[in-house]
């Protein structure tokens, strides 16, 4: 079943990107045509996709309708990704320090940690990360709230 789903997904992938290659300008000489090499790769991906479908069909009887995903197991990875996505969005508005502290605390709790060590851990790690990135690596971390406060003062 896995192989059939995978094969079909990649055939869809090939169709979408093949349509995108059609938008590219064409040239008479093959070495100057920007679409030739990607089209060749898409063709090969399509061939492998078909092979996977065929393999899937042959192994279907043996494997039956075996579940592709164990959704119960995927709960925590899903929570982590959702938290990370929210963190990245929120950081742009409230800045690095507050968002990172909250994110670390929530991720730590999601991993089954306790509140008190979580608060300590998040505070310390936020400071370490700030020091490492802002001072040592000289990365300009987003701090819109601090910037706003600075301009008001």
């Amino acid at each position: 079943m896995k192989n059939i789903v995978l094969g079909l997904f990649f055939l869809l992938f090939v169709i979408i990107f093949f349509m995108a290659t059609m938008q590219l300008p064409s040239a008479e000489a093959s070495h100057k045509d920007p679409a030739v090499y990607p089209s060749l790769l898409l063709f090969l991906i399509a061939v492998v996709g078909v092979i996977l479908i065929v393999q899937g069909v042959f192994s279907y009887k043996r494997d039956g309708k075996k579940k592709i995903f164990d959704y119960g197991k995927m709960k925590l990875p899903f929570i982590l990704m959702a938290l990370t996505l929210v963190y990245v969005i929120v950081m742009q508005f409230i800045g690095f320090l507050i968002s990172t502290f909250s994110y670390l605390f929530l991720v730590f709790m999601a991993f089954g940690g306790k509140k008190r060590p979580g608060l300590w851990f998040s505070s310390i790690l936020t400071c370490i990360e700030y020091g490492l990135f802002a001072w040592i690596l000289r990365v300009r971390l987003p701090e819109p709230l601090f910037n706003l406060l600075g301009s008001l003062l």
Binding site: F111, E129, V139
Partner: peptide, 24 residues
């Protein structure tokens, strides 16, 4: 306990990728 290390790695991965070009 792995929760300390996993939490740190996840956040370092996010900030590390931001630090490459200062780009979200």
């Amino acid at each position: 306990p792995k929760r300390f290390l996993n939490t740190a790695i996840l956040s370092l991965a996010v900030i590390g990728s931001f630090a490459v070009q200062n780009s979200f």
